[in-house]
Design a protein around this nucleic acid. Structure first.
Lengths: 165, 165
DNA sequence: GCTTTAAATGTTATATTATAACATTACATT
DNA sequence: AATGTAATGTTATAATATAACATTTAAAGC
């Protein structure tokens, strides 16, 4: 029994990113429709920009792109959209990088553990139930009630480990 | 067998903080001496300011205090000292708060899991070996080599849970 | 369809967090 | 004392994020 679900793997060889993007947008549309919240053009566009790659994207990089398309864009434009997307679980913030990654499974309640390659920048998202359980147990022993977990693991992904040799 | 070490508990009733402070400074002196690195007056002072409480402290709050004592203080003054203290494991940065907490066991190699009460702001530091092991296993399966872990759990501590009632 | 209301976005300004670059001082070693 | 390195001082600016208020857009009831 494997309690470790890989929500988003490191991208593999021959990875067709357009598929990820399409799937993410489709999932987002579906999720928002079900929840009765509005995935506006702006929010969708920001989501697309987050999903341009599997690397965490900075708010001001998104802002630069938005400004190419619409001169009136300003920091609140981006941060509000990101706040919405985060609240709906469509993107996650990587706290240790001040950057954002798309979530492949917004409709599936999960806790995340991120593996972040500090060489190529790629991120994988895991949901290991045992890790969650163990932390929950620890917390319980101390009478601590968990609301939210930030788990960000930095290191070297397999592709970059090979390149390093 | 309990694989969960509490490196720094939530502070208990009748907690004498002066003891924490003294112990932390003593440990820091010892650690730096052993490693042949210099705990200068400035660095010691910043460490003291981080240890004023068990809540994460902001860099600019430290800077304000330093300025009371020495007008020439500037952001680099604080950030350099914090960088040094982090590198030596004397303080940890809480990424999700952009703030710093003292480490009670700088000489003991450990990974940390932080429990952070978003009600009173207090932080506890744990080192659960099983969590580490499990994450290491996950990483290994994906060929990922771990360098560093950021684990920050937000919630309500027992004291605040009681107050809430 | 029109009105009302609430949500979303626009706009300007500013707060917060962090680093770059170069000058000076203090310290350890010779 | 002379030298080299580490630490700190100093000025400027970059990067990240929010506050506050104005305007526009969309949804819901009439």
């Amino acid at each position: 029994m494997d309690n470790n679900r890989v929500l988003m793997p490191f991208k593999e060889n021959g990875h067709q990113h357009q598929h990820c993007l399409n799937a993410a947008l489709l999932a987002a549309e579906k999720t928002c429709l079900e929840r009765g919240v509005r995935l506006t053009n702006l929010r969708r566009r920001v989501l697309e920009l987050v999903w341009r790659s599997h690397e965490p994207v900075k708010a001001y990089d998104i802002l630069d792109k938005l400004r190419d398309e619409h001169a009136g864009s300003a920091p609140p434009t981006v941060y509000r959209a990101l706040d919405f997307l985060q609240a709906e679980g469509l993107v996650h913030k990587i706290e240790s990088l001040n950057a954002y990654v798309g979530c492949a499974e917004p409709d599936h309640r999960h806790h995340s553990q991120f593996l972040i390659c500090h060489d190529c920048g790629a991120v994988a998202e895991l949901d290991n139930v045992n890790v969650r359980r163990m932390l929950a147990e620890n917390a319980k022993q101390l009478g601590f009630r968990i609301d939210y977990e930030t788990i960000e693991i930095k290191g070297t992904c397999s592709a970059c480990a090979i390149d390093d040799q």
